[in-house]
């Protein structure tokens, strides 16, 4: 996997974790079951996300910021040839590429970064 794509994936996963921790059902469960201090956890996640965003290669970071300004999900999976950001079919050659995820690719329709998944 391309290292920048791996970093993008990790950022997106952290943002998912952050979003969920900020929502009532999840927050309540994390506090009640795991004794988590959610405010502290949110601060830690925010700092880590910011650090990882800054560490992206400049060209990737620029694209990342442009998408992030408009969309909450910057990286989306491609499942069975469909971009799960805009639900448009991506070109077959790209979806079936043997070197899947070895390049940082974007959806030609919505611009989001793509992660090809089986």
């Amino acid at each position: 996997m391309h290292p920048e794509l791996e970093a993008l994936l990790e950022i997106q996963d952290l943002k998912t974790q952050r979003r969920e921790l900020g929502e009532t059902p999840s927050r309540d469960m994390q506090e009640a079951v795991f004794g988590l201090s959610t405010e502290e956890a949110l601060s830690i996640l925010d700092a880590k996300i910011a650090e990882m965003e800054e560490a992206l290669a400049p060209d990737v970071r620029g694209r990342y910021r442009r998408i992030a300004n408009k969309q909450p999900r910057v990286v989306v999976p491609v499942i069975r040839g469909t971009c799960y950001g805009c639900f448009v079919q991506i070109p077959t050659a790209l979806a079936s590429d043997a070197d899947r995820n070895e390049e940082v690719r974007s959806c030609q329709s919505c611009g989001r970064f793509l992660y090809l998944i089986d």
Binding site: Q12, D13, Q17, L36, E40, A41
Partner: peptide, 29 residues
């Protein structure tokens, strides 16, 4: 990596010998 990040926020060991490591990630469908 994601499970470790969750554990770093606070252990998922809930006591009585039980732990429930968990995370969401784009790598599973």
């Amino acid at each position: 990596k994601m499970l470790k990040r969750r554990e770093n926020l606070g252990s998922t060991g809930i006591g009585r010998g039980i732990a429930i490591p968990h995370c969401r990630s784009l790598v599973v469908n």
